[in-house]
Design a protein around this nucleic acid. Sequence first.
DNA 1: TAGATTGTTAATCGATTAACAATC
DNA 2: TAGATTGTTAATCGATTAACAATC
Lengths: 212, 212
Amino acid sequence: MESISKAAFRRLPRYHQILNAFEGLGREYISSRELSEILEINETLVRKDMADLKIRGKQNQGYSIAALRLRIEDFLGLQEITEALVVGAGHLGTALATYAGFEHYGLKIVGVFDSDPEKIGKRQGAHDVLPVSRLASVIQRKQIRMIILTVPREVAQGIIDTAVGAGVLAVWNFTPCELNVPPGVKVRNEQIVGGFMALSYYLKNVSGGGED
Amino acid sequence: MESISKAAFRRLPRYHQILNAFEGLGREYISSRELSEILEINETLVRKDMADLKIRGKQNQGYSIAALRLRIEDFLGLQEITEALVVGAGHLGTALATYAGFEHYGLKIVGVFDSDPEKIGKRQGAHDVLPVSRLASVIQRKQIRMIILTVPREVAQGIIDTAVGAGVLAVWNFTPCELNVPPGVKVRNEQIVGGFMALSYYLKNVSGGGED
DNA sequence: TAGATTGTTAATCGATTAACAATC
DNA sequence: TAGATTGTTAATCGATTAACAATC
């Protein structure tokens, strides 16, 4: 398995996004200096990340935007299609299930589930909402490896157990709980409220004088 | 301004969430060992974080869950009410505007804005959707310091300029762009797709053998 | 008492940055 | 050529961990 440092790994999505934006503007090359200024990190660190990715730049021009973007996509496996199911058809689940932008990253939502009889059968984007009772069989039939969890916290662990039992290996968890999974299953916790906490801390302290 | 290391700061939301869960179960104390196992970090690191927060534990028992939770809330300013406006009344904006859980953190959504005439005037949770043209005046009148941005990327910079011009100091940014703001304004980028990228990398590499 | 636990210091590890050579 | 840039090594900085004393 190719690998880079944890810290560099966390920077990849941000590089990728900037590359997309610059590509949209028709730019061909980007320098480590530009990337470092946008991300507010050190210039050398950008070059080190590029070296770790085994990307080489051109003297006087910088790095090829297209090549770098493709390299990151390849590294992260974004060029293969990942089929995923959304469990929980609330507002957040609906937002994720219908967000068109994901297709650029190879993420394809192939089903939406809920346990609320009110929601089951209703159309949501390209899918009808299915009952959670059918989750396991769909995972097995379609060989699904990822689920996106946007259910109430009380039912999260039960659903993940079902999904993992049926063969799921990756869980994108938007519920505010630490879930238990067997070894070999990866959970990514979004814990969205963490972002608010950082801003709250800033606001609390900004008034008193200190900046940033 | 009280401060702790960046890395410790990022752990606070996770500590907080675990404390909530344990408090819900009626537990009074939690040991550094338990916290470390749930978060999959080193036990000593937990104790160091507690020391940085100036929280003292009890020999043989651990840390008082209630005291620790309150300390984190106090540190992050979660005990004051933060009024915020949601800009963008799509699915994600609606999810955030109607999520009841935020009130436990002091976050109070006091308005929802959109530029789509179809959406303006419609009820959303406790609020009517207002036109973006009125954003600046509402910010000024209510002295709003935070906005939550869930608009299409093309209009994000324009809206942030308006909001910052009207006095906003903190931006919770769910759009996939790096926004320009003057010094003294804090932007928190959620870049949700980053979470998917981490899982995609995992799935790409797990089949080949390596675990986790 | 023995066991469980906290709290602290010093050692280690990993990530970032400074310095500088190479090159277009 | 001078200037702009990459790429790499060594130095520094910050975060984590190991070791261990203290104490209930």
